[in-house]
Amino acid sequence: MFDNFLLNGSADQVVVLAAGLDGRAFRLTWAAPRGPVRGRAAAGGVADVAVWLPAGLGAVLVVGFVLRSRRRPDPLIDLGLFRDRQFSVAVVTMAQFSVAFFGVMLLFPTYFLLVRGESALAAGLLMPSQGVGALITMPIAGKLADRIGAGRVVLPGLVAS
C-alpha cells in the first residue's frame, strides 16, 4: 500500500507538506532560554531573521501545497472535503480541542514535578488516571454519537473535562 502511495507520485506532496509544517519553522518564535539559534531568536523577537525566515518559508510551502493539491488528480489530502460544512466544523473543533488538550497534557507533569515536588516516577504514576477515565467513556461516547448525534455528546464531554 505504501509502495503504491509513493509510486502514485504523492511523495513530493508529503515532502512539501512536512517541510511546511516542520515544527522548527514555528517554534523559533517562542522565547527559549537555551540553544544558540533559539536563544538568539528569543532575544530579537519576531523581527529576527532566524524567526521570520523559517516561519515565512513554512507558510509559503503550506500555501504551495494547498494550491498544488487543488490541481492534482491524486491529491495527498482531498481538500474538496472541506466543502462539507459538517466536516469543516469537526476539523476546526478537533484542532481547537487538540490545542487545549495537548497544552494541558504538557503542563500536568511539569506541575507535579515543580509545584508538588513529586519524583519523576510519581508524576508518571499519576498520569494514567486520566487515561483510565478516557478508556471508560470513549466506547460509550462512540455508541452515543452514532445513536443521538455527535453534537449532543461533545458538549457534555467538554463540560466534564
Binding site: 462539507d84 466536516f87 480541542f97 499519576l126 486520566q130 470513549m138 461533545v154 464531554g157 473535562s161
Partner: peptide, 27 residues
C-alpha cells in the same frame, strides 16, 4: 480530578472524530 478530566476528554474526542468520519463517508 485527573480521572474526571479523562472522562470528559474521552467523551469529547470520539464524537468529533465520528462526525469527521461520517461526513467523509457522505462526501
Amino acid at each position: 480530578a485527573l480521572f474526571m478530566f479523562g472522562l470528559g476528554v474521552g467523551a469529547a474526542m470520539i464524537p468529533i472524530m465520528v462526525a469527521e468520519l461520517q461526513s467523509c463517508g457522505t462526501s
